[in-house]
């Protein structure tokens, strides 16, 4: 069974059809990229899946359960991890506290009021930080981290609820090229180790073709291509869509 199944998804904003009849599936352990030019409906699609928006039509199943009417929080509770285009971390806490907070929430300890939070899940947090290579920065204040480190911290937070599905919105945005590949390699390794399915959107075609196992191409709200990187690259419709941008040709070389 697919961990994520999207059927005939549609979203209409006051008369404007942003997403039309999109269907696809994601298998455990798979890296799936969702691409398309600006305004193609990537973000809308993404926000429909993570529950930020409610679809006008169509169905979404995660781990076989319909997410209809579920808040982002409840979808997260199903075992879905998320990272954001602009990193969202807890700036007033240290790196390790950020992960501890995520672990507390995952274990539903957020109502505990009579014991210090710092005493919870110290080992688990350390393990997660080690996994993303942040162990040496555990005690630093989140607000003073370099951007690449923030992204890795976010990954650790997203992994805290032992997700089987990871939704990453432009994970490499705003990073230097070398950092992008390092982050995505790390993600791919973890996804494979833990058989996590990853759905990500991305502008940078290098990253997409390097790391995605499968690619979905959206244009004007419609899915125009789907398949392995090589096949998508060769698809004339995709080439037409991306013609002015040049990114695809660069990627080919």
């Amino acid at each position: 069974m697919s961990i994520l199944a999207v059927e005939n998804l549609g979203k209409i904003y006051s008369g404007f059809e942003a997403v039309k009849g999109v269907s696809f599936a994601l298998e455990a352990g798979e890296m799936l990229a969702l691409i398309g030019p600006n305004g193609a409906g990537k973000s809308t699609c993404f926000n429909l899946i993570n529950g930020q928006l409610a679809p006008t039509s169509g169905r979404i199943h995660i781990f076989g359960r319909s997410t209809h009417g579920m808040a982002p929080r409840d979808i997260g509770r199903l075992g879905v991890g998320r990272t954001f285009q602009i990193t969202a971390t807890f700036a007033s806490m240290t790196v390790v506290e950020n992960v501890q907070m995520a672990l507390l929430a995952h274990h539903r300890r957020q109502w505990q009021w009579n014991r210090w939070a710092a005493h919870y899940y110290e080992e688990e947090a350390a393990r997660l930080l080690a996994l993303v290579g942040m162990a040496d920065q555990a005690e630093r204040s989140c607000g003073e981290l370099a951007y690449g480190d923030l992204k890795r911290l976010e990954l650790a937070i997203a992994l805290a609820n032992e997700p089987k599905l990871l939704l990453m919105d432009e994970p490499a945005a705003g990073m230097a090229p070398r950092e992008r590949n390092a982050l995505m390699s790390l993600t791919a390794r973890i996804a494979q180790e833990r058989t996590i399915g990853v759905l990500f959107t991305e502008h940078d075609m290098d990253v997409v073709f390097e790391h995605a196992q499968r690619i979905l191409v959206l244009n004007r709200g419609v899915l125009i291509a789907e398949g392995a990187p090589a096949a998508v690259r060769a698809n004339p419709e995709v080439q037409a869509v991306y013609l002015g941008a040049g990114a695809l040709y660069e990627a080919k070389q």
Partner: peptide, 28 residues
């Protein structure tokens, strides 16, 4: 102060710092 440094207090601060992230990790 006890509440402030407890998981509950952390959750409250988490919501202040980043509502988006707090919701994503499952805080109400």
């Amino acid at each position: 102060r006890m509440i402030l440094f407890s998981p509950f207090g952390y959750s409250l601060r988490a919501l202040r710092d980043s509502e988006l992230r707090a919701e994503a990790i499952g805080l109400e």
